[in-house]
Simulated assay, not measured.
Amino acid sequence: MRTRSGPRAALSAALAAALALGAAGCVPVDEPDVPPRTDGTAIQKLSQLTVASAGSMKGYSRERFPHWRDTGTNCDVRDTVLRRDGRNIRLSGCNVVAGRWESAYDGRAFTDPSDVDIDHVVPLANAWRSGADEWDDAKRGDFANDTTRPQLIAVSASSNRAKGDQDPSQWKPANRSYWCQYAENWVTVKHYWRLTVTSAEKAALTEMLEGCA
């Protein structure tokens, strides 16, 4: 059997070596120590949240979460949410002056925007105890005005005030048909903003989500 020699043999040997190295694979030098969080179901996102005891309220005030941000002349994020969540909206400039809103928390309906509160699904004080105390005020403002995630919702003033800063282990909407959506929204917000949950909070959310279709 004849063996090849010369330039062609050398080229073949080089190609074989390169293919062997490619087959063996390589590990990127900048591989992160912690795998990035990925989108998934609410249950999957909940499993990725850090469980920790609630932090201190020391230093907290609502002013540390600047809201509502301006969105136009005499208009702000509150108007944005009222317009998004309502029907038959009437405007004066960009101010919402009338419409119809149904509160998902308790099923009550309103036509006067002054009867409607804009709820932070994850309350500002809860966020403070869950890690937002370590943010600067600019980031806390981003959180308090977040209209991209399901963090802001138009609801009855009475339900918003009954909820206060409580988590789902302490308060749930009177409207049980909204529990699945409420739990999913809560988890989505905490997951995006990398906030912690207490063990009781996680247990309550798990129970709510496991009952969803």
Rank of each mutant, 00 (worst) to 15 (best):
T3Y: 13
P7T: 07
A10I: 11
S12G: 12
A13N: 09
A13G: 12
A16C: 12
A17W: 11
A17T: 14
A18P: 07
A20Y: 13
A20V: 11
A20R: 14
A20C: 12
L21W: 10
L21Y: 14
G25T: 11
G25D: 13
V27S: 13
V27A: 12
P28K: 04
V29Y: 15
V34Y: 07
R37F: 07
D39C: 06
I43P: 05
I43E: 15
K45D: 10
L46A: 06
S47K: 15
Q48I: 07
Q48P: 05
A52Q: 14
K58T: 15
G59T: 05
Y60M: 10
S61N: 11
R62V: 10
R62P: 01
E63M: 02
H67R: 14
W68G: 09
T71S: 13
T73P: 08
D76H: 03
D76Y: 07
D79E: 11
T80D: 15
L82C: 08
R84L: 00
R84I: 00
R84M: 02
D85I: 11
R87N: 10
I89R: 02
I89P: 01
I89M: 13
R90F: 09
R90K: 15
L91N: 01
L91C: 01
G93M: 02
C94T: 08
C94I: 07
N95H: 14
G99S: 06
R100L: 06
E102C: 13
S103T: 08
A104K: 13
A104P: 12
A104Y: 09
Y105W: 04
Y105Q: 04
R108K: 14
R108P: 01
A109K: 12
A109S: 15
S114F: 02
D115F: 00
D115H: 07
D117R: 08
D119N: 10
P123T: 03
P123N: 02
P123G: 10
P123V: 06
L124Y: 03
L124Q: 09
L124P: 00
A125C: 03
A125V: 01
N126R: 12
N126P: 01
W128N: 06
G131I: 11
G131Y: 02
A132F: 09
E134Y: 03
D136R: 01
D136N: 13
A138E: 13
A138Y: 08
G141I: 04
D142F: 02
D142L: 10
F143G: 00
F143W: 05
A144T: 09
A144K: 08
N145P: 01
P150F: 05
P150M: 06
Q151R: 14
I153Y: 01
V155K: 15
S156M: 03
S158H: 11
R161Y: 10
A162Y: 09
K163F: 08
D167G: 11
P168I: 03
P168H: 02
S169I: 02
Q170K: 08
W171C: 09
K172D: 00
N175C: 05
S177I: 01
Y178P: 04
C180E: 14
C180P: 09
Q181E: 15
Q181C: 04
Y182D: 01
Y182I: 04
A183M: 06
V187A: 04
K190G: 00
K190C: 07
Y192S: 12
W193M: 01
L195I: 10
T196L: 02
V197G: 02
T198R: 06
T198G: 11
S199D: 14
A200G: 05
A200E: 15
E201G: 03
L205G: 03
L205T: 00
E207V: 13
E207P: 00
G211K: 04
C212F: 00
